[in-house]
């Protein structure tokens, strides 16, 4: 059995036990193998970026970790009782207000203090002044904040974000990452998938590279750059592309 991706973690947290750990995950859709023996782990406060070309298996990996799909092989261990999951598309009801959406999902998540969770998330996401606005009237950035807020209602120790910054403009993206950094600083482990490899470099403590359902790399962004040598010296994106090329992708 392969070892979990004991990635280089944030200094000062590397000795902490993983809050999320999955080993040798396999997922098939008919004849197509979406994941082949993929392992991943995350420690408290760690930011783990999952990157790879289209169809690499990023969303499949996150949905298995979230409990949406069952793996055909491998095991998901060290799973906390609650994992926050934020799908790529805003997943809430456009005909309900921000507060009504948060209240509903807090109840569905089984939050003991629904009013408290609502206030906390409105405060944390800065959506207090839009609490009574219909979700359909929110901007793209605010919709994504509401989307993430729903995932955080149960105060999960692990948050899974599927391409959280897709469809956001640079300013909204910056605010989103400030928010996610705040969560990480508070001890929440964040695993996110992204197409934007610069986001993996800038915000990820560790990076997992997937291609055709296979984990090609697990380590820090600097380790990835070193792995390709001089060919990838220009920047992280160049190193990533070169890394895939060297591995035949």
């Amino acid at each position: 059995m392969a070892q979990p991706s004991a990635t280089v973690s944030e200094p000062g947290r590397s000795d902490a036990a993983p809050v999320l750990e999955a080993r040798d995950l396999v997922k098939r859709f008919g004849d197509r193998v979406a994941l082949r023996n993929v392992s991943i782990s995350a420690r408290p406060g760690e930011l783990v970026a999952v990157i790879g070309p289209n169809g690499a298996g990023k969303t499949t990996l996150l949905s298995i970790l979230a409990g949406i799909q069952r793996p055909d092989g491998g095991e998901v261990g060290h799973v906390p009782a609650r994992i926050g999951w934020v799908p790529q598309q805003p997943s809430f009801y456009s005909k309900l207000t921000v507060a009504e959406n948060l209240r509903l999902f807090a109840r569905l998540e089984g939050c003991a203090d629904v009013a408290g969770a609502l206030d906390r998330m409105l405060e944390q996401t800065g959506l207090h002044d839009r609490a009574d606005s219909l979700a359909s009237t929110l901007s793209g950035g605010n919709r994504q904040r509401l989307n993430i807020a729903i995932g955080l209602l149960a105060e999960p120790p692990v948050l899974l974000l599927d391409e959280p910054s897709a469809a956001l403009d640079p300013r909204q993206r910056e605010r989103l990452w400030d928010f996610i950094f705040g969560l990480s600083a508070g001890g929440t482990a964040v695993v996110y998938s992204t197409h934007n490899v610069q986001e993996a470099d800038r915000y990820g403590h560790n990076v997992i590279v997937l291609a055709d359902g296979e984990r090609l790399f697990a380590g820090s962004p600097r380790e990835l750059e070193r792995a390709v040598g001089e060919a990838g010296a220009r920047d992280f994106e160049a190193a990533f592309v070169e890394f895939l090329r060297q591995r035949g992708h």
Binding site: P90, S91, F92, R107, I150
Partner: peptide
């Protein structure tokens, strides 16, 4: 509304 999976993940 993309809410289906989120709803059935809960209670």
């Amino acid at each position: 509304q993309n809410a289906f999976l989120r709803v059935v993940r809960g209670l």
